[in-house]
Each structure stands twice: as C-alpha cells, then as structure tokens.
Design a binder for these strands. Structure first.
Lengths: 169, 169
DNA sequence: TATTGTTATACTCTATAACTATA
DNA sequence: TATAGTTATAGAGTATAACAATA
C-alpha cells in the first residue's frame, strides 16, 4: 500500500532542510526533517494570516480556543498546563485579551489565589469568526491529502505523540 | 490496516492543544493540532539538548548540517533559501560560528559580492559529534514507531509537503 | 511548605527596511 | 535595475527567577 521508503510524489526542486541529500540509512532523520518542514511551513502561514487578517497571534488564538471549549472558564494554571507554557506567559496573554474586552478574569471564592478566565460575549463572537477562517485554512491544506494518507497520518501521529509526550513531564 | 479515525493508542490524560475535545467532523483540524503538538514537543526537546549538551542552537546546527553536505561550501544566499530565513539572519549565525572557528567565509573571485561559507576542520569535527548525538535522539523517538507507521508517515508527509510547499513561494 | 498568579528580565528567532558594493 | 551581503531594529515567543498572597 505504501511504497515503503520511496518518494511517492515527485518533489519540485525547491530547497528545504530535508534537501541536503541523506542516504537511506538515516530514515528516521529524514522523516523528522520532513515533518519539521511541513509543520513550519503551515505554522508560519497560519501565524501570518492571523496577523494580517485578524491582528492576532497564535498563542492568543490558542488561548481563546481553549476557553471556547470551557464555557465555565479555566483557571490560569490550567491554561498554563494545557498550552504547555509557563504561568507568566499566560498572565501576559490574558492581560492583552482582557484589555481588548475579549476575555475576563473572575476571582473564585473557594481559592482566593486563583482566577478563572472566560470569553466575553464579544470574545465568543470574534473567536468564532476567526476559528471558522482558521479551519478553512487547515482544510484547504489537508484537504489535498488522500483519505488513506489522512488516516495514516492521524494514526501514526497518535503513536508518535505517545512516545514524545513524556518529554514534557 | 489503519483503523480509520480511531485513537489507536490510548492517550494518557495529559493536556495539550488537541485535548479540547473536538467532534469528529473537524478531523483535519484535529490532525493538524496533533501534528503541531508532536512537532513542538520534539523540537523543544532538541533545542533544549542542543543548548545544555552542546551549547548551541537549532539554526546554528541546521546551518552546519547544510555545510557538511556541501564540502565546497555554500553561498550565503543559498543558505538563506535552503533554511528559508532572510539573508540578515544568515549573516548573524555565520558571524557567531566564524567567531568560534567553526566556519569560514571565503571571497569568490567570479562575483565579488558573494561569500562562500565552509566548515573548518574544527567545525567538521564538532558537528559530526553533535550530529551523531542528534540522530540518536531522533531515533530514540521515532524508533518507537512500528515500521508500518513510519512508512505511512513518511509517504503522507511527502504528500502534505507538496501541498504546503507553495506557501513559501 | 507548596501553589497561584504577577512582575521583571533576558534570550532566541525572525522579519522588515535601509544601506553598500557589486553585477 | 537587480542581487549579495550587512546592519539596525522591532516584535513574537518563551524561560527563569523573585515575589506576595493564600493554601
């Protein structure tokens, strides 16, 4: 089904990290460079569009995405764990979003150290619009994949994530 | 062979970007978030090890990797295209590496604007050691994948790269 | 003692733009 | 005019560490 290690699709002659020809005995390395190149291409495209079309950044987008899925709000420390960045960074992003009226902090009575962050009505409205555009960007990229490839990627990445996940602990 | 869209491997209950449960009709988005999470986990681990064990950074490592494969050296602008960053950044990285005696610039007679950058003997020695360690890190991560998954990933990413590649043009 | 959130700070990475010297 | 490389600068993104309030 998969032709093992062959290049199934002819690559145009465009240089990238993987291009420094590696012999076949470095397959894992080639795999990693290919994945890294893909990710970087897509990620920088998304950052660029978020900036030019919605005047926002990827971490801000990600934080709002978390909140949309948590209507009751999330504690800052939960956001920190989920986004895998330190507490101080969450404070900074939340400050910006709050200043623009997109999220709000609420003090929680049960633990007076904690704050809960929620999307405001405006925040929900604005984010839904961005999220829709974002999903279309993604679909226009991944939509070019065959169903087989899409499913194979999905499952293989689950395996990889299980291996890589402990790194963050 | 692949169970279509199911989670083949049980995920430990660790939060990440993909965790904000998305229904199955957003499959491309889940796929992207999963890939992004994998890449970020691995990349930050590699950056961290390069820093603590070899006192270097990923762009510096990448530049040296390009040069090892080009014994005759490369022009700065070629490096810039290959690494997909602007010329000014290549100047900066090259400055650092040259100061440490790892690379050297040579003026080329045919075009007096250009420089060719090469690894020095020391640069080759140092890089080979780092590259060996780097490859072991990668193999210890991707080695956990089954052969089927590895091959499926490799081919699917080739497809994806072909779709995403034009973004950089 | 440990945790929540804040503040201050520093570094990496990258892009933009203005510049020079060639071509 | 266009290209090769340099310089300066700005901003995103992130980490570390010290701190206050609370648990």
């Amino acid at each position: 089904m998969n032709e093992t290690t062959s290049l199934t699709f002819a690559m145009p002659d465009m240089p990238d990290l993987e291009s420094s020809a590696l012999p076949d005995d470095h397959l894992d390395l080639r795999l990693w460079l290919r994945m890294l190149t893909c990710c970087n291409l897509i990620e920088s495209e998304i950052r660029s569009r978020l900036r030019t079309e919605y005047n926002t950044t990827l971490p801000r987008f990600d934080l709002m995405a978390q909140l949309l899925r948590a209507p009751a709000g999330m504690k800052m420390s939960d956001l920190s764990r989920r986004m895998m960045v330190t507490n101080g960074n969450i404070t900074g992003i939340t400050d910006q979003l709050e200043k623009e009226g997109l999220v709000e902090r609420t003090k929680v009575a049960s633990d007076r150290r904690s704050s809960v962050v929620k999307l405001t009505a405006k925040g929900k409205r604005v984010f839904r619009k961005m999220a829709q555009a974002h999903e279309q960007w993604i679909q226009s990229l991944f939509g070019g994949l065959s169903d087989d490839s899409r499913n194979a990627l999905f499952d293989a990445l689950a395996e990889l994530k299980a291996v890589a996940r402990p790194l963050a602990s």
